[in-house]
Simulated assay, not measured.
Amino acid sequence: MMNRITELFKIKYPIIQAGMVWNSGWRLASASSNSGILGLIGAGSMYPEVLREHIQKCKKATNKPFGVNVPMLYPDIEKIMDIIVEEAVKIVFTSAGNPKTWTTWLQERGITVVHVVSSVKFAKKAEEAGVNAIVAEGFEAGGHNGRDETTTFTLIPMVKEKTKIPLIAAGGIASGNAMLAAMVLGADAVQVGSRFVASNEASSHEAFKKLVIETKEGDTQLTLKELAPVRLIKNKFYDEIQDLYKTVPTTESLKQLLGKGRAKKGMFEGDLVNGELEIGQVSGLIHDIKPVAEIVEDMISEFENAKKNMSNF
């Protein structure tokens, strides 16, 4: 399955395992890379030295390419970038910030840079900044999304129309069928998050994983747009957010409710009542927890079958 993305990353299949906070440690990243896709360590939930430890363990667990996802809104960004260079990581996905800030600096040090966007406007800015590829993420996705609520299957062809560099589709993709559909619309590859949350190797709490496979249509909602839009499973914390919105809250009052460590409490420590539980809409199609290798095998098999069926059609 050679194309621009598999050649860029030197991987077997055009699938990227998303770098998700509290879910994407070295075990998930290395298992993903060993399965023939690109594994990403999620630096957003790690202090700099914790990230170094995960990178070192990942290097011991796989001899295949892997990368680090860096949300640029987090503190200690300079230390994180220095560690990435010191540990000879060759692929970095940046998000939640201006791609001009770090792209050239990283590329001058031999690192391939991919930037995550949620709109055509920001896709064009990322291309102008010189990134090697773009992830275009629709609002179906878990985690932090765009404020415009553009769906993946609307966003992908619009970004494809306005840019020329390799394009990775993200948001609502958890199967080989969805992978084929995204690529028909112009994507060179797909980035998959929620499906890998429900894997044996994800670093998230077992209680959170079990909740993900129980989640149905309508159980998630995009909220907190005034801070950074995030899709959450509806729980007591989510209800508190909605109650606060009825009072026309200030940004400061929303920050006060969110507090610190809310995502860690939910996804990593398993507090399903008071924690922030980030997951995509596609969780309604995820029904089991299994090894990464099996998830990848199923996706590729389904992709090939879907492609064959469409050819017959």
Rank of each mutant, 00 (worst) to 15 (best):
L222S: 13
L285N: 13
F313N: 15
I173F: 04
E226I: 13
V117W: 04
I295H: 09
V230T: 15
Y13H: 12
V116F: 07
N3V: 13
E297Y: 07
F153V: 09
T223P: 06
N34A: 05
I111M: 06
G130Y: 13
L272D: 06
M179S: 00
L244F: 14
T62G: 02
V120S: 00
Y47W: 14
P157G: 12
R109H: 08
M158Q: 15
T215Y: 01
L51G: 06
D188Y: 09
A129M: 05
M299N: 02
E140A: 14
M299E: 02
I233N: 02
V135C: 03
S175H: 00
K60I: 05
G275F: 10
N132Y: 01
S311T: 07
P249C: 08
K210N: 14
T250I: 02
K265E: 15
W26I: 09
F66N: 00
V131P: 04
I300V: 15
I83Y: 09
F237R: 00
I15Y: 08
V70R: 02
Q281C: 12
M158K: 15
E128T: 03
I286L: 07
C58I: 07
I16V: 15
P291M: 01
L224A: 13
L211E: 14
E49L: 06
A207I: 01
S95N: 03
A43Y: 15
V292G: 01
R27N: 11
S35Q: 10
K260L: 04
T101L: 14
S199K: 09
F93A: 09
F313S: 13
P71A: 05
M2Q: 02
F268C: 00
V159Q: 08
Q221C: 07
F93L: 14
A43D: 15
K160M: 12
I289L: 06
L8G: 03
P48T: 11
G171R: 12
I134N: 06
V296D: 08
K308F: 01
T247W: 03
V68C: 03
L73I: 15
Y238I: 11
K79L: 12
I241G: 02
E302P: 14
P48M: 13
T150A: 11
G36F: 11
N274T: 00
R52D: 03
F268M: 08
V184T: 13
E7G: 00
V85I: 15
G44A: 03
K308H: 11
Y13M: 13
G143E: 10
G146D: 08
E214F: 11
M310E: 04
N309R: 11
F196W: 10
G266F: 11
E86W: 09
D219R: 01
A170W: 13
N132W: 01
E240D: 15
K10Y: 02
M1W: 00
K64Y: 08
L211S: 07
M183P: 12
I300T: 02
E78Y: 05
L211N: 10
K265D: 12
K210F: 04
A43L: 11
F139K: 04
V89K: 05
G270Q: 05
D288Y: 07
I84W: 05
L8C: 03
E278G: 05
E78D: 15
N132V: 06
I279Y: 03
A202F: 03
A293F: 13
L51A: 06
G146T: 11
I300Y: 04
G130E: 10
